[in-house]
Computed example of a mutant assay.
Amino acid sequence: MYAFPPSSNTDIFFGGKLLRRWLICLHATVRRSQRRPSSSTPTVQLTLFLCASPSTGERERSGKRGKMRLKKHKRNRKVVRFYSTRYGFREPFKVLCDGTFLHHLVLNKLGSPQEVLSSLLSARTILFTTRCIISELKRLGESFSESLKGALSLTITKCEHPDRVSASSCIEAIVKDKNSDHFFVASQDADLRKKFREIPGVPAIYAIRNSMFLDQPSACHLQFVKTAEEERLHMKELEVDMIKEREKKRLADQAAADGTESLGDVTKGRGVRSMHTSWTFNQKDKSMFKRKRAKGPNPLSCKKKKNSKGPVAA
Rank of each mutant, 00 (worst) to 15 (best):
K71Q: 15
V202A: 02
T56S: 13
L23K: 12
H276D: 03
D177T: 08
A52R: 14
S187I: 01
R293N: 14
S301H: 10
R193S: 02
F281R: 15
I24S: 09
S7F: 11
V106S: 04
T267A: 07
F224W: 10
F281E: 03
I126R: 06
L50F: 11
G296P: 02
S169Y: 13
Y83K: 00
A28S: 07
E58S: 09
A123K: 01
V30C: 07
K74H: 14
T41D: 08
S262H: 04
D241E: 13
F89P: 00
I134W: 04
V30G: 07
T227S: 07
T155R: 09
L107I: 09
I134E: 09
F49G: 07
I12Y: 12
H27F: 05
G111S: 06
S112I: 09
F183W: 12
S169A: 15
F93M: 01
N9H: 08
N282H: 15
L96M: 11
I126L: 06
G99N: 10
S8L: 10
L140K: 15
S33I: 06
P162E: 14
M275L: 05
R65N: 09
T47C: 03
F224C: 09
L121P: 00
K292A: 10
W279G: 10
N108M: 06
R69S: 04
P92S: 02
L46V: 04
A28R: 07
K284Q: 03
R20W: 02
A173R: 14
I12R: 11
T100M: 07
P54H: 01
D258G: 00
F184R: 00
V44I: 11
D181G: 13
I134V: 13
P297G: 11
V266Y: 14
K178N: 15
V95N: 01
C25L: 05
L263M: 03
R124F: 03
R197Y: 12
M212K: 00
H104D: 01
L222K: 04
H103R: 01
K72R: 08
T43N: 06
G16S: 13
A190Q: 06
V272C: 08
R20D: 02
R193E: 04
K286I: 11
E91D: 13
A255W: 03
E60I: 14
F289P: 12
A313W: 05
N307S: 07
N179E: 00
I243E: 13
G111M: 13
G66F: 13
R69F: 05
K74M: 11
G15Y: 04
T130P: 02
C97Q: 10
V225P: 00
T47A: 09
R139W: 09
S145G: 11
A252V: 08
F14C: 08
G141Q: 07
E245N: 08
L110P: 02
G99C: 11
E261K: 05
R232E: 10
I156S: 12
L26P: 03
P200I: 07
R61K: 02
C302D: 12
A52V: 08
E231G: 11
H103E: 13
T260L: 06
K195R: 14
T100D: 03
I243R: 15
R81V: 06
E230I: 04
F49Y: 07
L70P: 02
G264D: 09
E136F: 08
F224A: 12
G150L: 15
H103P: 00
T277I: 01
L222E: 02
T100A: 04
N76S: 14
F213P: 00
E136T: 13
G111K: 12
